[in-house]
Design a protein around this nucleic acid. Structure first.
Length: 701
DNA sequence: CACCCAAACTTTTTT
DNA sequence: AGTTTGGGTG
């Protein structure tokens, strides 16, 4: 398929001066790419433009939101380069593709510096670790590892034994993370975002200090460290020069979802902004909870002198105009931003639907009815999606889907790596990889029957005392450890760590040790065993243990949700996705669940104007995923899971405050089921067929 | 010291 | 419903 460009896309893609000696000199640029305006195409053309004008692809840094996005981009750029060169060759009269053309085309393969901020940080840090006093063998902790570590320290510092309840581990981690990513002091963060924790200022500071120390001691970096170390790597004059010298151009996708720390990295790497292209859409900034700051994109132009040039893309190729009328109406209600209104050449007769239903059950019923109707009409399930604000909104729907045997895959929410058994197996491998990784060791040891926190700590201390040599554990004695489980574990750790067992067999060995324990630990060992086996399978795709462990954490498998759909794997299936995970995607039909105040916007955002704006943008993202049909579903009554104490309750939801008058004008309101009475119905109701009144009265004669 | 049970408490989105 | 704490038992 030819990759054509519209004029507005081309201007953005070809910004900058081509230098006589090769290369492109370009002042900073900001591309405001509205939903569905061909952002990926534009970025791919930008990359191709740079490469074809002599920029070394290895000196282009491509930051995307996910690995998948990076791969797609580089494939497309490669195609464009190949195509353009072929075209040029043809014009010059050379009949066949010459060797030089092929060589130049394959050059895009060299677009090697690409990925998320975190994965690029990982790669850079492994390379430059020695020069900043970091051991290159560091492990990476995911959020739950980090929380576990917080938890251990929280107990060690006896913070749980105060009169007043201390914030729980996840909250502690959130506070810490916000300080790092938003580049704010603890005072500021507590005051602005966690006022109910401000009494604990000193204790938290002490905890975070201990946390930072523990990470260094255990040779591990958390997500935030990856960015923080990179930031410092590009700040320290002694080394920054070398890091800066690596790149001539940087392309940052989804810039609206970067945080202050990430923006800081970009600015440190490219102090004068030359060579910087950022792409994004402020109307789609939905990661504030992860410290993303819309201000990054809003104030990007003014961060430079002269200011960066702004290229808005506003021709939408995805949706029919009525959907855009609706999303534009939403955009017009927000207070700030570029307000990049979208237009499309695709007309449609019907407006998006606002479907009123009684409750969640009717909501599911409506969706299933329409899904099947659509499928009959030739629209595969794959071209339809159900979107929602939070994961549990689909509980009811999932039951119904299974009942109707409709295969689906759920994105967002619980992930493969979140399940306890997968974490167990992974921690075992990671501990073998990095004996200093106490958090992993702690988790593994507690799996053994008879081993609790105290004994686990003792074993870990013993290991440390013996220079982290796993063989030393053979001499650790305790009456509780006189069993094969323990001896096998010690042997396994040694063999795996020292590669006595080659990498290809390591994960299998972990499995066979863990499998028997699984049966004693969990109710459903069979399903869980399958997951662990699957982990072993995945591990075979990585060339080394280190790569496997880092990449699994930086780019985890998308989903494991609808496991029940195994048999339908290659078939057609429906997508269920959180709006956050629906980023960049599009479907023929989109169903949006629970459009009612409390769910949309989320009840916790209602009293905070900034949070409310974010909810509005979230709504905007959801709407703009649809190509043809959009169904907003508005239940009158819905279930609130566990607001206070007693299990949950039914609430009569108020109409979503996002459905203002001007927004309603863009919607077609329909009830479901449609039991509006017809004149005939009314007439039928008025006929007296039987005198029930007197029968009821007759009971008391 | 590990393990089990009961009571108290609780936000949601993810690299 | 899931996490965290505290108490009781072996």
């Amino acid at each position: 398929m030819p990759q054509v460009c519209t004029e507005e896309q081309r201007q953005a893609a070809e910004y900058g001066d081509v230098l006589a000696q090769g290369g492109v000199s370009s002042p900073p640029q900001l591309i405001i790419a509205g939903a569905g305006t061909g952002k990926t195409n534009t970025l791919a053309h930008r990359a191709a433009f740079l490469i074809m004008n002599g920029v070394d692809p290895q000196r282009i840094l491509l930051m995307t939101f996910s690995r998948r996005a990076a791969t797609e981009l580089s494939v497309r750029a490669q195609r464009i380069v190949a195509q353009t060169l072929k075209q040029a060759a043809k014009e010059e009269g050379r009949a066949t593709e010459s060797a030089s053309v092929t060589a130049a085309a394959s050059q895009t393969d060299q677009l090697s510096w690409m990925g998320t901020f975190h994965s690029v940080a990982n790669r850079l840090l492994r390379q430059y670790a020695p020069s900043i006093g970091l051991d290159a063998d560091f492990s990476i902790m995911d959020r739950s590892d980090a929380a576990d570590m917080m938890d251990v320290l929280r107990h060690k510092l006896e913070l749980n034994q105060q009169q007043k309840r201390f914030p729980k581990k996840a909250t502690c981690l959130d506070i810490y993370s916000r300080c790092v990513n938003a580049q704010q002091s603890l005072d500021q963060v507590l005051e602005a975002d966690f006022p109910w924790c401000s009494d604990w200022h000193d204790e938290l500071k002490q905890l975070f200090r201990a946390y930072t120390e523990a990470k260094q001691h255990q040779l591990s970096l958390d997500y935030d460290d990856l960015l923080l170390y990179w930031f410092h790597l590009s700040s320290e004059e002694s080394i920054a020069e070398r890091v800066r010298g690596l790149f001539d151009h940087i392309l940052v996708d989804e810039y609206q979802d970067t945080n202050k720390l990430q923006a800081g990295i970009v600015h440190r790497l490219f102090p004068d902004g030359r060579g910087v292209t950022v792409v994004g859409d402020d109307a789609q900034s939905i990661y504030a909870f992860r410290c993303a700051d819309v201000d990054n994109i809003l104030s990007f132009p003014e961060a430079f002198n002269p200011p960066a040039r702004v290229f808005p893309l506003s021709e939408n190729f995805r949706s029919v105009q009525p959907i855009l009328d609706l999303s534009n109406a939403i955009l017009n209600e927000s207070k700030e931003g570029y307000k990049n209104l979208l237009h499309s050449q695709k007309a449609a007769a019907i407006k998006p639907l606002l479907v009123s239903v009684e409750d969640a059950e009717m909501q599911s019923k409506y969706i299933i009815e329409k899904l099947l109707e659509n499928r009959e009409a030739g629209i595969d399930l794959k071209r339809q999606a159900v979107l929602y604000r939070s994961s549990h909104h689909t509980d009811q729907l999932e039951i119904e889907l299974r009942r109707h045997d409709i295969p689906y895959v759920k994105h967002g929410g619980l992930k493969f790596l979140d399940s306890a058994h997968v974490k167990d197996a992974l921690c075992l491998l990671r501990w073998a990889d990095n004996p200093k990784h106490r958090i992993s060791g702690f988790r593994v040891l507690k799996l053994l029957p008879g081993v609790g926190p105290k004994l686990a700590e003792k074993i870990l201390d013993y290991l440390e005392l013996h220079d982290f040599d796993f063989a030393s554990l053979q001499t650790f004695s305790s009456s509780r450890l006189d069993n094969d489980n323990w001896r096998d574990l010690v042997a396994l750790l040694g063999d795996v760590h020292n590669h006595v067992t080659p990498w290809v067999e390591q994960m299998q060995r972990v499995c066979s040790w863990y499998q028997p324990l699984l049966e004693t630990l969990y109710e459903d060992p069979y399903a869980r065993g399958g997951d662990v086996e699957q982990l072993a399978m995945i591990s075979q795709q990585s060339p080394s243990r280190e790569r496997f462990l880092s990449e699994l954490i930086l780019d985890p498998p998308a989903t494991s949700g609808g496991l029940c759909t195994d048999s339908h794997k290659d078939d057609d299936f429906l997508i269920l996705s959180t709006i956050h995970s629906a980023k960049g995607q599009e479907w023929h039909d989109v169903f949006l669940l629970n459009v009612a105040d409390g769910n949309f916007p989320n009840e916790y955002a209602i009293n905070d104007p900034k949070a409310l704006e974010e909810e509005r943008r979230l709504f905007y993202v959801a709407l703009t995923r649809a190509q043809q049909n959009l169904h907003l579903i508005q239940p009158l009554k819905y279930w609130v899971p566990e607001q206070q104490r007693f299990g949950g309750k039914h609430v009569y939801g108020a109409k979503s405050r996002f459905l203002s008058k001007s927004v309603m004008r863009c919607l077609e309101a329909v009830p479901y089921p449609d039991n509006r009475l017809t004149p005939d119905d009314i007439k039928a109701g008025e006929q007296v067929l039987s005198d029930i009144k007197s029968k009821v009265m007759g009971m008391w004669d």
